[in-house]
Computed example of a mutant assay.
Amino acid sequence: MPTSNRRGAWFTLLCVLLLGVFLVHNGSTGTSGGPPEPSPAVAADHGAADAMPAAPGPLPHSPPRRIAVPSVRLDAPLTEVGLDADGWVDPPPLANGNLAGWYRGAVSPGERGTSVVVGHVDNEAGPAVFYSLGLLQRGSRIEILRADGRTAVFAVYAVELLAKKDFPAARVYRDTAQPELRVITCGGRYAEKTGYEGNVVAFARLVEVR
């Protein structure tokens, strides 16, 4: 897909989110005890991004194939996801707990701008791919293996639990001058009828290419 079309789809999604649509809407089961929540200290200072190592130059477009987070022993395949008939980001199949999804309407990880990866926090079998996302700390590395064989390495600079209500879409999904990444899953309190009340969002910036 040409770059202009990819960005067009991305801006369409952003507009939908600004109207209050929640990114990951499929309900999950509410694992006993609940998933780990981010430390307030990790969310307190978005200016920490400025203290990250200088970002390498942006990479060309290349779909991602795997995501790894060594600090929480996460290693999972990535599939491409789009929007469903109602305009929501369509997450990976709930039954496949160890599968994450890259939203193909945004840039690929390592390109200039903000790339987005989503995944479930749990399913009927228990914890799923991003159950431990809330444990990430400032400086945690997120490694994305791309189809071109390069690995884009991102450093986390903030992790937040954001409520569905008044979700700050403009801040989370904003276009950025450097290659950035958002990794998103469900989080917060769980209710049988409405699912999780919020999203855990990890904010990260490209710091290395291997």
Rank of each mutant, 00 (worst) to 15 (best):
W102M: 06
A85D: 15
V207H: 11
A41Q: 10
P35M: 06
L162P: 02
R104F: 06
A106P: 02
I142A: 06
P56Q: 05
L161Q: 11
L206H: 08
A128S: 15
P64G: 06
F154G: 02
M52S: 07
I144A: 09
R146P: 03
A85E: 14
G110R: 04
F22H: 10
G134H: 05
V121D: 00
V159E: 04
D86P: 00
A177C: 01
A147Y: 12
R138L: 10
D84V: 03
A155C: 07
E208V: 02
T194L: 10
P70A: 02
A177H: 12
S39I: 01
P93D: 14
G119I: 03
P38E: 01
H61E: 03
D84H: 07
V129R: 06
A202R: 04
L14A: 03
E111C: 01
A49L: 08
A106H: 07
Y190P: 03
V183F: 09
D90Q: 14
E111L: 12
A43Q: 01
P91Q: 06
R174Y: 04
N199R: 13
L206V: 13
Y131R: 08
S115M: 06
F154M: 02
L83K: 07
D166Y: 14
P127I: 08
L18E: 15
V16P: 00
Y190L: 12
A55H: 03
G110M: 09
R104D: 11
N26F: 00
E208L: 06
S28T: 15
D84R: 10
V172F: 10
L145K: 14
A54Y: 00
G113V: 09
G8Y: 10
G149D: 15
V21H: 09
L78E: 03
V24R: 02
G110C: 12
E180H: 14
L161H: 13
G82D: 11
A169R: 01
V159L: 04
S108T: 15
E180Q: 15
G105S: 06
S140Q: 09
R182V: 11
F167H: 13
D45M: 00
T31Q: 11
P2D: 12
P168S: 05
A170S: 14
E192S: 12
A41R: 13
T79W: 00
L99T: 08
T114M: 08
H25N: 09
M52I: 00
G105L: 01
G30M: 05
D166A: 15
L99P: 01
Y173A: 06
V183A: 02
R66Q: 14
V69N: 07
P40V: 02
V117T: 07
G33K: 04
A177M: 12
P109N: 08
A68L: 10
A191P: 00
Y131N: 08
Y131H: 15
A128T: 10
V16N: 12
A169V: 08
W88R: 13
A85R: 15
T3V: 11
Y173F: 15
A100I: 03
Y103R: 02
A169W: 05
P168N: 05
V129Q: 10
N123Y: 10
L135E: 15
